[in-house]
Design a protein around this nucleic acid. Structure first.
Lengths: 139, 139
DNA sequence: TTGACAGATGCAACACAGTTGCGTTAGTAT
DNA sequence: ATACTAACGCAACTGTGTTGCATCTGTCAA
């Protein structure tokens, strides 16, 4: 639920610079509101005249994730995706058109996680849940 | 819940061959009962004298998954894992020692999936849930 | 036992995501 | 304007997974 402006301010407050790549990546994720992978972002930035090396994109994403401005997401195609921080949600992934939508569930496994900690002695830190299927457009 | 012998019989019944690599991979997955990645299996096979090319391992895994003798699993490190078929379960992944354990939940989101289909028009085919945390040994 | 068919294999070369070292560039504060 | 150092570009590299093609081998039938 952080805004683009808040992220910018926090970056400056911590003594980091506002480079074209940094602003570009942030703006992209806040505008699209969808998980994007590094090469997608490099292409999208290039279209708006921001030509950056792929190494820069990877390092920028690592930096922004470390600073908690964005979050890494894995969607089971082997690539790393990133999205802007928002309330905890899960993804609906269309196996046909690959589109990604968010979904917020009421049940967030608090009971199940307690059961796991009790029965397996496993301390749950976080979880990951994705639904695969066919979106409304592709049916 | 398929046994190793059943898998072997089904493979022969469908006219496919029983090669060293094929038997080796199957035996490994039935013995370990844990998700294994291609390169892990190549190493484990080599230790028991079964030297196979990585291409063979990848093709074997694809074949066995297609024939429904094994299942592909993604564990968010970007690699493809495979495990022998058993009842529907989820994974507990230790962020410290990377060990993987199974967990079976009572709630399998039938209600949530119906909600998703009703509200988003998204037809759910399957889902994927993993828990990340610290296992009993690593605490 | 042998021969032959086709499934299975090895090899080399490739594709792609992501990483590393290092010299250079460019935001920012003074 | 200057200097400090965060950030960048480049080239080379790692690891996972894929492809084309020539070769090999499990299986079955004669």
């Amino acid at each position: 639920m952080k805004t683009y402006q808040e992220a910018i301010q926090q970056i400056r407050a911590r003594g980091y610079r506002l480079t074209r790549a940094r602003q570009g990546v942030l703006k992209l994720l806040w505008k699209k509101r969808k998980p994007l992978a590094a090469s997608d972002m490099q292409d999208l930035l290039a279209k708006q005249g921001i030509i950056v090396n792929k190494t820069t994109v990877y390092r920028e994403l690592e930096f922004l994730a470390q600073e908690k401005h964005i979050e890494e997401v894995r969607l089971h195609d082997g690539r790393r995706y990133y999205e802007c921080v928002s309330s905890h949600h899960h993804h609906l992934i269309c196996v046909t058109c690959k589109s990604i939508d968010d979904v917020i569930l009421e049940n967030e496994f608090e009971r199940e996680e307690r059961q796991i900690e009790r029965e397996a002695g496993f301390k749950v830190l976080n979880h990951s849940l994705e639904f695969f299927g066919v979106c409304a457009q592709c049916q």
